[in-house]
Design a protein around this nucleic acid. Structure first.
Lengths: 193, 193, 193, 193
DNA sequence: TATGAATGAGCTTTCATTCAT
DNA sequence: GATGAATGAAAGCTCATTCAT
């Protein structure tokens, strides 16, 4: 792994462990095992890290989604696998989600958000398009529009469990929330097999 | 207005104007017209402001929702007015949303989130319950569950426009997004008039 | 007890519990059960407390000495009782000793030191004078001079045990130190029965 | 001189000039000619300076003692030179003495006191041991015990002059106090030539 | 007398960034 | 490229003191 990747990985790790507000460049470089100054060879500032982290996180999420979803399965099965994947990533990295929000929001890197998140949108958009082609879901909305709403809904549903909920009985509530989210989604898409 | 309220109001104002990262206690107290030390009479630290701000924002959102929604209107009209209200608040205060996320997430005040957001959940839950009683929406999900998903979906839809999108053509895209969100919601709830 | 005395007593208590550096006027008035502003009705500033505390402490020490020493006993017995008394007070209030040092030293109240400490010096001076009159100790030094050295020696001996030593085996080391101090003193005074 | 030494030296200087209560880290770093942040590279807090200062002061005292005392002189001459040295250091740095007391006392660094003061105790203990070997002083007390008492007595005697006394006629009273202290000491040690 | 909320100067401390090596 | 000691602006926070009640 090269130094730049190492910095991003360490940053994700430290943010996850210590939280956003309390993470410093010093912590990150210590975890990465490099010198303070080396950081600035790869990133012009601390804030410029954020898009890189967001990108890695989106890639990780997309990778998890692709690995979890069986392309040969039916649409409803694929949608269920998709929500499972989103919930799984969120469970592991819920701290980072908040960081991406605030990190991107407080910089001038907002414009990069769309391009960073694009592959994820695209994947879901394709899923929706297939469903429409198979005529198992409604076709009166554009796949891109539906993709946005599906992703927003599923991630916020996961956050409600993993970011704000107490840990007690978390798994049970997660299962319930996933079931409800899927039911909600299927209805929203007008699914009929 | 007492000093504590003044601090929270000023904090919201400054955060909205200057952004999260660049706001300091010093800015807040200057805006509030009080002394630096007075801040610490009411809040033990800077981070402990966050739950108070979140509470005010949720109250403001709920107030906007209540004012916007016509209680005598039909369910579908009420749902549309609800999404309008959420989008309107988000347009005005999108910076604060990110702050609440990161502020709450980075402190140990997460447990307060549920109680802070409770009135909002309750309101939507009642709306859903009415819809179910009128038999215009499906009743195979609990109103509380649906409320969570409705709020999550609508707010994430609004954020996609106001937090991350460019300002160019924002209103047009907002209108479109609202329309799609409402359509999505109506389907998700199995609405039939 | 009037308010002024209450302030001094509370100050001594808080200094003993929390240490010098960490004691605030706020702590003192809370312990005294009075309002913040009331403090300044009795003392013009925080530092002006120090001489009052010193005075009380010296009075307390003298009171302990007078109560402990049997006036009808022989000189060597009285000297032993004196060291016992000094060690006893020091054990109880060692924190205050350091405070008096630094508190008086860092103010412009040093001149008051002599008058505050005068009764103590006088008492020991009388003891010495009696010893000289009874011809059990040497008379080639002035009683006042000897009194100063006796007090300085005994207090520093006590401090070595109670201020800086670890608490483990403290009583044993205190006993030993007292014995050595007394032997040292008796020789220093040229005691012969 | 490295930065750490520079900080300690400057701290001693500023404490001596401005007094304990009024010295700030800001003053110290200005005197040292370094940046504010550099201070915290070497000392985690302001209070953690105290043991380092104490150590330097003890070293300085010991250095003065060693330079002043003629090793080839007789025991009584050496003892006189020792008291001269202690009084000389105290005259120069009486402010620091109070600071060491309060600084060490108000922190959790008390345990370090013994190790900081150890070389001084050792030196006097050796002096005493030599006296005992030459049979010019009594040998019924352990040299370490006597060393403690000698140092405590001499320093408290010096403090009585330089810390609390007025400056008027200070030299005369110092001379007198030194003479009395030496006489006291010689008797205490049972000196016979 | 007594109060205690309010003050604000100034403290300690932090940490993103730089630069000589 | 890599280092890490040094920087210093600026942050969070404290607390002796004041004053309207």
């Amino acid at each position: 792994m090269n130094k730049k990747e190492k910095i991003v990985q360490s940053a994700i790790q430290v943010f996850t462990e210590k939280g956003v507000e309390k993470t410093t460049v010093s912590h990150i470089v210590k975890t990465a095992g490099i010198a303070q100054g080396t950081f600035y060879l790869y990133f012009p500032s601390k804030l410029s890290l954020m898009p890189a982290i967001a990108e890695v996180m989106v890639q990780l999420t997309l990778k998890t989604v692709i690995e979890t979803v069986d392309e040969t399965a039916s649409f409803d099965e694929q949608l269920q696998q998709f929500t499972d994947a989103i919930f799984a990533v969120n469970k592991e990295h819920h701290e980072i989600q908040a960081m991406i929000y605030s990190g991107l929001a407080s910089t001038e890197h907002l414009k990069e958000w769309e391009s960073v998140y694009a592959p994820m949108y695209q994947w879901v958009s394709s899923l929706v398009e297939n469903g429409q082609k198979q005529k198992v879901i409604r076709a009166d909305s554009h796949p891109d529009q539906l993709a946005k709403l599906i992703i927003g809904l599923t991630e916020s549903a996961a956050e409600q469990i993993y970011l704000y909920d107490e840990e007690f009985d978390q798994d049970i509530r997660a299962t319930e929330q996933k079931r409800e989210t899927l039911l909600f989604l299927m209805n929203a898409l007008g699914y009929t097999k």
